[in-house]
């Protein structure tokens, strides 16, 4: 009796293990199968024609051309088209603030470059900061589900909101404070829902996406479009691109270069 019960439990245990291992081998989610996908067929997914492409997208911010009006326009258009909730303005909930791009003092944007005798212009002008789309992003290293990832084809650091578990490890890892967490349903503080971009849900992290959705339609990022020439956007790996020409002519700096994250956003000071 004792013996047979033990054997039964053993067999039951092994079969559960077997089923588990088997399903791991087969793959946990079954793949969508069509006849075409079984043979070696032409690719089922491709980019939209007319999409802007690059090997590594980058941005130069010319702080000499920045002013308060442009800063405001850039933040407004960005937050409007991306359905970024305004918890501070609408509900006074400072703790739940979400921002993708925002103006800040030189001493905050460039903490390690700050000193007593910074030029008057830099003391007065606020500088736009946003996700740096680092070439060596620490947030991507930290994410336990690859919900945030660097897109291989063009170097964008993006969020997959469907996959994010909201552990906020990426926020701790980001040395630029570029990420925000949805502490509550963002719809509570979106004045007018923009139909062309999906708002997020509570419990996920979000940040600037370099307007990936606009690039796919063949348009430049919205902040660049309204920047009156203060922002230059282009392919950092194309030596003939505008952005490379600007970088060749000016001595631009990045935020916290000493951390080795290799930001793709450069500043002309």
């Amino acid at each position: 009796m004792e013996n047979s019960r033990r054997n039964f439990l053993k067999i039951a245990g092994y079969s559960i293990l077997g089923v588990g291992a088997g399903s791991m081998l087969v793959g946990i989610t079954p793949k969508f199968t069509t006849a075409a996908s079984e043979e070696s067929a032409p690719p089922k997914y491709k980019e939209r024609p007319g999409a802007l492409t690059a090997n590594r997208w980058g941005m130069v911010i010319d702080t000499r051309k920045i002013n308060g009006r442009i800063n405001k326009k850039m933040q407004q258009v960005c937050h409007k088209i991306h359905n970024v909730p305004d918890f501070v303005g609408q509900l006074g909930a400072e703790n739940h603030e979400i921002k993708w791009i925002w103006p800040t003092k030189f001493s905050h944007a460039f903490v390690e470059q700050d000193h007593q005798f910074v030029s008057d212009r830099l003391k007065e002008t606020k500088i736009p900061v946003l996700c740096n789309h680092c070439n060596n992003p620490p947030c991507v290293r930290a994410c336990p589900t690859q919900a945030t990832f660097k897109r291989e084809k063009d170097g964008l650091v993006l969020m997959d909101f469907h996959r994010c578990i909201g552990c906020r490890f990426c926020i701790a890892a980001c040395p630029f404070g570029s990420r925000s967490f949805n502490y509550r349903d963002p719809r509570e503080a979106i004045e007018e829902l923009e139909p062309n971009f999906t708002p997020r849900m509570k419990g996920v992290v979000e940040k600037c996406n370099f307007c990936a959705e606009r690039l796919a339609r063949g348009e430049a990022p919205a902040c660049v479009e309204v920047s009156e020439g203060a922002l230059i956007f282009g392919d950092l790996e194309d030596p003939s691109s505008d952005i490379r020409k600007v970088l060749a002519e000016h001595n631009a700096i990045t935020r916290k270069a000493e951390l080795g994250t290799y930001p793709s956003v450069f500043y002309i000071i």
Binding site: A93, E94, N95, H96, E97, I98, K99, G166, R168, I171, A172, G177, S180, F181, N182, Y183, R184, D185, K202, G203
Partner: peptide, 15 residues
């Protein structure tokens, strides 16, 4: 129901 907004965490102190 509400989200982690019922805690005292904010945009800077996210843990």
């Amino acid at each position: 129901e509400f989200g982690l907004g019922i805690t005292g965490m904010n945009r800077d102190v996210t843990w």
